[in-house]
Simulated assay, not measured.
Amino acid sequence: MPNFIPPTPANDAATGFTRLLTVLNTLRTECPWDKKQTMESLRHLSIEETYELSDAIMEGDMQEIKKELGDVMMHLVFYARIAEEQGAFDILDVLNGVCEKLINRHPHIYGDVDVQNEEDVKRNWEKIKLKEGNKSVLGGVPASLPALVKASRIQEKARGIGFDWEDKTQVWEKVEEELQEFKDEFNVVENSAIDVEKAESEFGDLLFSLINYARFININPENALEKTNKKFIKRFQYLESKAQESGKALQDMTLAEMDIYWNEAKKL
């Protein structure tokens, strides 16, 4: 006989959330592993779970998304339980806090503010955040975000208060300008010495301008790059499998030989 009888599956969201709280609270008091966890020890696991959810979303695997959402939700409840033990806050404080924030930042729904479109909503959101105590519009962008994602968020935040280009043609002109400046620092024709620091700076400017242009044409640069990563991996693994079938090691093949399989992979 088990020490504890598992709570039965729920038929509504509220009861289901209570079931999760019950299970997590039991594990926290009874399981040796769960007892030992701290916010710091869970942090890297939470990051991993978030990336697994991201992978599932990119693959469009709804069953996997459902599973990973559960894992992420469990971690959120776990953090709240630890905070409750420390007397800092509890899960009810978390839920009420986020509800109050959403209500306050949607005055066009819960107040008398008029908006015409999505851009008005974003502008109001940033203005309200400043009234709440944020010292900078960019203050809400986490410092530890990957650089590509961070660049997108910085640009979105700036756009939210009206600091943006007027037309995408202006943005593309900026891309071409930055590309030329990078080429000036990193001349692919001349075999001259390169100032790596300057070239790196210009390359960063070029990437930032490309991310800006992607935003103007409604392309998520993180998603676009990840799809290209997956495409490259798939084609490279095809190349590896074909090389193995032919009894050759990739490092012993010529580039021309590898190109044959690579071009085959592009047609799949």
Rank of each mutant, 00 (worst) to 15 (best):
N3K: 09
F4E: 11
T8C: 02
N11R: 08
D12E: 15
A14W: 04
A14S: 07
L20T: 00
T26N: 12
T29D: 11
E30S: 10
C31G: 00
P32W: 02
W33F: 10
D34S: 10
K36Y: 01
M39T: 09
L42F: 00
R43W: 01
E48M: 04
E48G: 04
Y51R: 11
L53M: 11
S54N: 02
S54R: 07
Q63E: 15
I65G: 08
E68L: 06
E68D: 06
G70N: 13
D71L: 11
V72T: 02
A80K: 02
A80Y: 02
E84G: 01
N96E: 12
E100D: 15
E100M: 10
K101L: 13
I103L: 07
N104M: 12
P107A: 07
P107E: 08
Y110I: 11
V113M: 12
E118S: 10
E118L: 13
K127M: 12
L130P: 00
G140P: 06
G140A: 04
S144Q: 08
S144A: 09
L148A: 00
L148F: 01
I154K: 06
A158V: 04
I161K: 02
E166K: 11
K174C: 11
K174S: 10
E176F: 04
E177K: 14
E178N: 09
Q180C: 03
F182D: 05
D184M: 09
N187P: 02
V189F: 14
A199W: 08
L206V: 05
L210I: 13
L210Y: 00
Y213A: 04
R215V: 02
I219T: 10
N223H: 07
A224P: 02
E226A: 14
K231D: 15
K231H: 07
K242H: 07
Q244S: 15
E245W: 01
K248N: 11
K248W: 02
Q251Y: 15
M253R: 06
L255R: 13
A256V: 07
E257K: 05
I260T: 13
I260R: 10
N263D: 12
N263W: 04
E264F: 01
A265D: 05
A265G: 03
A265I: 01
A265C: 04
K266F: 05
K266V: 06
K266L: 14
